[in-house]
C-alpha cells in the first residue's frame, strides 16, 4: 500500500539562506521526486466518494502521477493529494461519473480553491 503522505524533510521550511547547502537545490539524497508535494499547486483538489466507487481500476490505469491509492487487494482507497495534479483524466474515465446524478459520482473536484501557491 502506498503511503498517503510522503514526508521528506531535508531542511526546515523556515531555513534562512545562510543555512542552505552550497549547490543551489542540492539535496543530500536520491530518489526524492516523491518529496516534491506538487499536489499543492493545484487550484482545486480531487474528492473520492468511496461508496460510489465500483473498483474498476480505470482511474488507476490512466493516472499519469501514480496518485490513485489502492489497498493490497487492489481496491481503490483514495487519492494521493500530495502529488495529484488535477488533470481530471480519472474524473473523465470514471464509469459512475457517467450518471446524470452528481451525487452518484465517485471522483469529483471540490468547489473551493486550495492551492498553496
Amino acid at each position: 500500500m502506498k503511503k498517503q503522505s510522503t514526508g521528506f524533510k531535508v531542511v526546515s521550511s523556515s531555513a534562512s539562506w545562510q543555512e542552505l547547502e552550497t549547490g543551489g537545490g542540492l539535496l543530500k539524497m536520491t530518489g526524492n521526486s516523491e518529496a516534491y508535494r506538487t499536489g499543492n499547486w493545484v487550484p482545486k483538489t480531487l474528492e473520492f466518494v468511496e461508496e460510489n466507487c465500483i473498483n474498476c481500476g480505470l482511474c488507476w490505469a490512466v493516472c499519469p502521477d501514480d496518485s490513485i491509492l489502492l489497498d493490497e487487494k487492489g481496491n481503490m482507497i483514495g487519492v494521493d493529494l500530495d502529488h495529484c495534479k488535477d488533470c481530471g483524466l480519472c474524473v473523465e474515465i470514471c464509469p459512475p461519473n457517467k450518471n446524470p446524478d452528481p451525487s452518484k459520482h465517485a471522483l469529483r473536484f471540490r468547489e473551493e480553491e486550495s492551492s498553496d501557491f
Partner: peptide, 8 residues
Amino acid sequence: PVSYGNFD
C-alpha cells in the same frame, strides 16, 4: 548520494 539541479 546527492542529487543536483532539484526543483525549487
